[in-house]
Measured scan of single mutants.
Amino acid sequence: DEVRLHVNGHTIEFRGIDEEIFKILEEAAKRGADEEELRRLAEKLLR
């Protein structure tokens, strides 16, 4: 299960996240989070 999030012209792939987590990451990206911040956030949410 892989999703792709487009951030500042880059595509970031995440594996094993559900739609709810994806929406949180998408919102963070809209607020200016970079790839590293998004990955840290995803790790926290998946715990």
Rank of each mutant, 00 (worst) to 15 (best):
D1W: 15
D1T: 09
D1Q: 11
E2L: 15
E2G: 10
E2N: 11
E2C: 14
E2K: 12
R4H: 14
R4E: 06
R4K: 11
L5T: 02
L5E: 02
H6L: 09
H6Q: 13
H6S: 11
H6F: 03
H6I: 15
H6D: 08
H6T: 14
V7D: 01
V7L: 07
V7I: 10
V7K: 01
V7M: 05
N8M: 04
N8V: 02
G9H: 02
G9N: 04
H10P: 01
H10N: 08
T11N: 06
T11I: 14
I12V: 07
I12C: 04
I12L: 06
E13K: 09
E13R: 10
E13Q: 05
E13H: 08
F14V: 04
R15H: 13
R15T: 13
R15Q: 10
R15A: 08
G16E: 05
G16A: 03
I17Q: 02
I17H: 02
I17P: 02
D18G: 13
D18L: 04
D18R: 06
D18P: 14
E19I: 12
E19K: 09
E19T: 11
E20T: 13
E20H: 14
E20Y: 15
F22I: 08
F22W: 06
K23F: 08
K23Q: 07
K23L: 08
I24Y: 09
L25C: 01
L25K: 00
L25N: 00
L25Q: 00
E26F: 15
E26W: 14
E26P: 00
E26D: 06
E26H: 09
E26M: 11
E27D: 10
E27L: 14
A28C: 04
A28L: 09
A28R: 07
A29K: 02
A29Q: 05
K30W: 15
K30L: 08
K30V: 07
R31D: 10
R31I: 07
R31Q: 12
G32H: 02
G32Y: 03
G32R: 00
A33W: 10
D34E: 11
D34F: 08
D34R: 08
D34Y: 06
E36M: 13
E37V: 10
E37P: 01
E37K: 09
L38S: 00
R39F: 13
R39E: 02
R39W: 14
R39M: 12
R40P: 00
R40K: 11
R40D: 08
R40W: 14
L41P: 00
L41S: 00
E43G: 11
E43F: 14
E43L: 15
E43K: 14
K44F: 15
K44T: 10
K44R: 10
L45V: 03
L45M: 07
L45K: 02
L46K: 14
R47Y: 12
R47H: 09
R47M: 12
R47K: 10
